[in-house]
Amino acid sequence: MTTPKVTSMHDAIAELVRDGDTVAIEGFTHLICFAAGHEIIRQRKRDLTLARLTPDLIYDQMVAAGVARKLIFSWLGNPGVGGLHAIRRRIETEELARSGETPLELEEYSHFGMVGRYTAGAARLPFFPLRSYFETDLPRANPLIRLVESPYGDGPVYAVPPLRPDVTIVHAQRADAGGNTQVWGLLGCQKEAAFAAERVVVVVEELVDESVIRADPNRTIIPGLIVDAVVVEPWGAHPSYVQGAYDRDNRFYLDWDPISRDQAASAAWLDEWVHGLDGRAAYLEKLGADRIASLRPGPAPSGQVDYGAYR
């Protein structure tokens, strides 16, 4: 029996996310923990380096709220909709001249480069080799992407450095009180990002008994061994989705586009939906039962496997 790690979102963020940290809220379109991002905004953390393959709306909101100093990423967009305008305002030359804001620092890779960085971080390797970046301008834009020769004499490969976040936050379908975490659907690189991190926060739709985890050990992606806090926050990934539980709220992604294009509108949105609310329960109440109900999918259960009893 492991030590219970269940805590509130407020306490998990207050204790485990510190000003100046490198924070990774991972999840590739699936399982993006907006609830944790909003709590970081609410607690007015500062000077964070935000790592994520796809910054998505959550980092656009966090940048708009002023919590970030730097981004480490591989694809900067509102998926299926367009740009991330709060972030672009801190990068593009005319926008910066107009606003007088401090430019956001950028450290840019490709998807495989980011995945490789987490993998090297998780395995405590000095670098990760990959056959990307040849004949591109990316190594010039980011000098941490370096060409190396294979020690076995079979040609060049590129190397990326390990990424070891101070904190990785992942959302999941379920975990037990000890932090043993199970996910199904797209797996992204949450496992790599969690093992790479110094501290790990798991946010789940459902807290389950340890026996539920043990009945299906192949589905466990993160062991409680590396988890510092378990937060139970149903719908905590809204407006992204949770396989089998709710769909992406596409209206939200479309609505964010005009809001994010306007600095004042973005600030007003943050006041209304983040600072003006004390947590996820209030957010859901404000969103409304009808909106939430419209996102539930029909059933498509998996078949069952028999692990066998070996005594």
């Binding site: 796809t54 900067l76 740009g83 990068i91 593009e92 490709s110 591109t136």
Partner: peptide, 20 residues
């Protein structure tokens, strides 16, 4: 690159897809 007129999404997986 650091102060562009327009910032686009970047590579995503495109760079490695083009190569492999």
């Amino acid at each position: 690159y650091e102060r562009p007129t327009t910032r686009l999404p970047g590579s995503g997986g495109a760079c490695e897809i083009a190569i492999n």
